[in-house]
Amino acid sequence: MAAPTPYKKKPNLYHKKAVQQPVSFWGRLLGLLIFVFFTVLTAGGAWFYSWTQSEQPNPPSHSVLIERGGVNAVAAQLVQQGAIDSAPLFILLARISGQDASIKAGSYALKAPMSPWQILKKLAKGEVDLQMFSMIEGWNWRDLRRALNAHPSLKHDTAAMSDSEILAALGISATSPEGLFFPDSYHIDQGSSDLKLLARAHRLMQEKLDAAWANRQADLPLKSAYDALILASIVEKETGKATDRPMVSGVFVNRLRKGMRLQTDPTVIYGVGEAFKGDITKAHLRMDTAYNTYTRAGLPPTPIAMVGEAALIAATQPSQTKAFYFVAKGDGYSAFSESLEQHNAAVRKYLSNR
């Protein structure tokens, strides 16, 4: 018997031995370019991050004023004022962080060295460098305008405006701005408009006046809240001590009820205006202006000063008194009298040695 023929595996006609092709020049170049790109990207990202966190070399010696505008304008303002050294990088930082639309206008204290990231966060949060403007009880409108025009941190939008133009811009229908602004200390930021400050002070005055008028005593000889404001301004100017205000208001209310003239010097002085030089005379008392309460009955046509809350409350909640007269004692307080005889005696007592 013949020996079996050994089995031979048939070759796989469909299998070919893998042959490693050499990498082409273009493939090597592409790989190199990708490597260089990611290397540059990583190095650039690290450098950019370092810039965002590094303190700027020359911080400004004063507050930085940021006016309204987009992030491009803000970056340009920061560079111009020395807060940062690169506008494009700051714009990129603001947009990458999503805070480019959150930047708020105002005055910012950046005097200490700060990084661009710290500056951006401060601007986005609106952490402005607030300053103060004080309106003083007893100031008249001329005093207020002078103070507004002289304040170095305000934008003087009202400087070239007339009184009527200011009232129109504020949407106030009154004929005079006198007494329409509440005396207080207001926070302001660098470059803010004096017109906006007046709007704030007017809103606060309206709130205080409305509250006082709503809580007024019954049967006051006052036709409106504006009448109460006029009376409050007279009380404000007539009193040196807050404790006297309700009594002084009570005297004026008694006179209004009786149809007596108020005969108060501050209104006469207001009517004389800037011609008044500090000493009231008989000629002043005889000068028939709209504010001379010696020659005219009733309240003057407008307030004569800015009034505080205590004067508003005194005008709407006067003391219940029988007094019709008062005279300054010289120590800030007043002496009150029910009759003319008592008043004349008080005048001789307290004014004879002046």
Rank of each mutant, 00 (worst) to 15 (best):
I166S: 12
M161N: 00
G171N: 09
Y186E: 14
T175R: 11
L130N: 04
H187V: 02
D184N: 12
H202V: 00
M135I: 12
N140G: 15
L170N: 05
L154P: 03
K196H: 03
G171L: 10
G138I: 08
P177D: 08
A159G: 04
D143Y: 07
T175F: 03
H151P: 01
E137V: 02
K125A: 13
A199K: 14
A218I: 06
N149L: 07
D163R: 09
P116V: 04
A218H: 07
K122D: 05
L167T: 00
K122F: 01
I136F: 05
L144Y: 07
D157Q: 06
D219R: 03
D163M: 01
P152C: 05
M161A: 14
Q131T: 04
L120N: 07
D189V: 01
K125F: 13
P116Q: 08
F181A: 00
L170W: 01
W141P: 01
S164M: 11
S192C: 13
Q206K: 14
Q206W: 02
N140Y: 01
G126K: 06
S192H: 12
G126F: 00
R146K: 15
A168T: 09
K121L: 14
P183F: 05
P177I: 00
I172M: 14
L197P: 00
D194E: 14
F182D: 00
I172H: 09
L120K: 13
H151V: 05
R216Y: 06
S185F: 11
L144P: 02
Q131P: 00
G138T: 10
L170S: 00
Q206P: 12
S153M: 06
G191M: 10
P183L: 02
L209W: 00
P152L: 08
K122P: 02
A168E: 14
H156L: 03
A174M: 06
K121H: 11
H202M: 04
L167V: 06
L167Q: 14
L170I: 02
S134M: 09
H156I: 07
H151A: 07
Q118H: 10
S134C: 13
E178Q: 12
Y186T: 07
V128C: 09
Q190A: 08
D219L: 13
P116N: 07
S192R: 08
